[in-house]
Amino acid sequence: MMKVLRIIFLKDLKVSLRRWSDLLTSFILFVLVCLIFPLTLGNDPSLLLKIIGPVMLVAALLATLLAMQNIFRPDVLNGSLEQLTLNSYPLTLIICTKIFSFWVITSLPLILISGFIASSYYVTGNSILIVILTLLLSTPSLVHISALAAALTVAIRYPGALMALIIIPLSLPIMIFGAKAIEFSISGIDASAPLYFLLGMMFFTCSLGPVVTAAAIKISID
């Protein structure tokens, strides 16, 4: 079983790397959304420190939304996803692996660069770590919610708007608490409460998300 999941994981990584332009698009979107605020708002440290939390999370949400449109679509079009549902391994675990590999490819780069972006917003010291930790805890939830939306809309030709409509209400708690965690740490308050909430949401979405997503996939390729 583990061997099968490893094969799927490595194959997804390989395929995603060969579709590098897709991934680069979402990464560039994240960086540009983060950079456009200092450019348009002006170079006022106190203002930038105030908005960095929401900006980071909105940028991460948009990047995830853009990247996740393609998590299942190509595999549905070429028929390999229906083959995945036809073997004797549980689809939930296969989907889980697929989502994890997508997270590695789409969200890890964002997390890695978020430290640099934070320092360009004049965030210093421990708060940079909190920014990175916040993204580390919130992106898994965002990816799972987006995967569910992608699975529900995979048979629809232009799913973009509908996906956004599904994802944004559902990911609101993560956005609120993520932005709060960053805001707290910058203003010198203990940020552990919102971070614990994000951790809880992460466990919640990671455990239930793949089950629902697998069910949605089965319905969508029907």
Partner: peptide, 25 residues
């Protein structure tokens, strides 16, 4: 069960060999 429909279930970004190896049963 082995099923082959109209869609050939080949991943275009993988080579023919990798596609053949990408079966785990």
């Amino acid at each position: 069960l082995a099923y082959l429909g109209h869609k050939n279930a080949l991943i275009p970004e993988l080579t023919a060999r990798e596609n053949l190896e990408y079966t785990f049963e």
